[in-house]
Nucleic acid binder design. Sequence first.
DNA 1: CCGGGTTAGTTACAATTGTAACTATAATCG
DNA 2: CGATTATAGTTACAATTGTAACTAACCCGG
Lengths: 160, 160
Amino acid sequence: MSVPASAIRALDLEHFLPYRLSVLSNTVSTALAGAYARRFGLSIPQWRVIAVLARTPGLSAAAVAERTAMDKVAVSRAVAGLARSGRVRRALARSDRRRSVLTLTARGREVYTRIVPYALEYERRLLAELAPSEQSFFAAVLTRLQRRAVLLGPAGAARV
Amino acid sequence: MSVPASAIRALDLEHFLPYRLSVLSNTVSTALAGAYARRFGLSIPQWRVIAVLARTPGLSAAAVAERTAMDKVAVSRAVAGLARSGRVRRALARSDRRRSVLTLTARGREVYTRIVPYALEYERRLLAELAPSEQSFFAAVLTRLQRRAVLLGPAGAARV
DNA sequence: CCGGGTTAGTTACAATTGTAACTATAATCG
DNA sequence: CGATTATAGTTACAATTGTAACTAACCCGG
């Protein structure tokens, strides 16, 4: 009853987790990006920067990068755009003049207070699909998978 | 005990579902993309095309687009690359000479049989984080959220 | 059977994103 | 100190991706 060595398991894209994650993430991000752009003239990277600066003012660009899972170039570009539109203020740290000190301006804070209800409402509508207990389970699973994915790192980098 | 009308709920990026989905999807995709590129010289779009053609030969480009959640331009580019490297054969449908008939070549099938074990192994390692019952629950949740996200469409397009 | 509209796919161009090199400042160590 | 190395951030360039225009083939009503 053995299977020939050449037999391989089938792989249907629609059941393949990485594919499904990518499609879902894309659907959600595209929807939000459109809304952010239309209503607030913000890109997703810019929205992320605003979101962290609203909660933690005075961060450096590197610190923002850490908390937004963006690289420093993406942060630099997003901040440049936000500074141009008067939503973020850039200063230099007195103790280390390489480091920037980023804060939202009044206009930046206003964008934040206007966008948050939209963002949360979208999330609420999406999660309305799930019962409350399912929501917390799903959130926990995401945390675990994220940790695991980081541990796995560059897919079977050396092994397999 | 009422909250002032101006109070807004906080939004921490790290608890915001769209952000978390994006980060997880990105981590996973980056890992796989690196492995596909290094080991097989394939991009993710190319891998997707190979995956569906292996299971369903003879599809048109539009049909491939449907099943890979890619747009027709992305498919066109992926197929062009695969044709160049001799992994996909393009023919024209006799009944409709606009439509292409795409099939894997022997080399294309070989790539598929070599890449599938890697892809499934990566998925297995990721899902090893979850108990079997959690895995099926998670898969079901993804299906439901995907459906819901498509229904919601362009984030609160007109409403809110 | 022929003009208007439609569909499949490609090509051209614009915008975004990633990678690498660079500038300025700071830290380390002989 | 002064030379070397490291870090923060920007700029320049390459690659990817998205958008729009285009070509070729088909379809359909008159």
